[in-house]
Amino acid sequence: MNTLSRREEDTIIKSTKERALKECGPIVREFADCASGRTVSVVWACRGKYRTLQTCMHK
C-alpha cells in the first residue's frame, strides 16, 4: 500500500487548485464581478454564476 507524505499531498492539492483556477479563470471573474459591491444579496443575485463556478472547479 502506497501512501503520500503530507508534503506530497500538499503539493498535489496546490497544483490542482492552480490548474482549476487557470481553467476556470473567466468563470471566476464573472462571479467576482457579480459579487462586487454586494453583501447579503450575492446569495440570490449570483446563484447561477456560483453554481457554474462550482461545477468548473469540481472538474
Rank of each mutant, 00 (worst) to 15 (best):
8 E>D: 14
39 T>H: 11
3 T>R: 09
14 K>M: 01
30 E>H: 06
13 I>L: 10
34 C>P: 07
36 S>N: 04
57 M>W: 04
33 D>W: 03
22 K>M: 01
16 T>N: 12
43 V>E: 05
41 S>L: 15
26 P>G: 06
49 K>H: 07
35 A>W: 04
38 R>K: 15
39 T>M: 12
47 R>L: 10
48 G>Y: 03
12 I>C: 05
9 E>N: 12
27 I>L: 12
10 D>F: 06
27 I>S: 04
14 K>F: 01
24 C>N: 02
50 Y>E: 08
36 S>Q: 08
33 D>P: 00
30 E>S: 12
21 L>T: 00
46 C>S: 10
16 T>Y: 13
31 F>A: 06
49 K>W: 05
8 E>V: 01
3 T>Y: 10
44 W>T: 12
51 R>I: 04
9 E>T: 14
24 C>S: 04
2 N>C: 11
28 V>M: 05
55 T>M: 02
43 V>H: 07
3 T>N: 09
47 R>S: 14
47 R>Y: 01
20 A>Y: 01
8 E>F: 03
56 C>L: 06
46 C>H: 10
39 T>C: 11
54 Q>S: 09
59 K>G: 15
12 I>Q: 11
59 K>Q: 13
6 R>Q: 15
17 K>H: 13
39 T>S: 14
42 V>E: 13
19 R>N: 12
28 V>F: 09
43 V>G: 01
18 E>Q: 13
38 R>L: 15
59 K>N: 14
27 I>E: 13
7 R>N: 12
38 R>P: 10
18 E>T: 08
13 I>F: 03
34 C>K: 06
34 C>L: 09
41 S>W: 11
5 S>N: 13
17 K>R: 15
28 V>E: 06
4 L>N: 01
1 M>S: 13
25 G>I: 00
18 E>M: 12
54 Q>A: 10
4 L>V: 01
29 R>A: 09
25 G>P: 00
56 C>M: 05
37 G>S: 02
33 D>V: 02
20 A>V: 12
57 M>A: 08
35 A>P: 03
14 K>H: 06
40 V>W: 08
3 T>H: 05
29 R>Y: 03
22 K>I: 00
49 K>V: 07
56 C>V: 06
7 R>F: 13
50 Y>S: 10
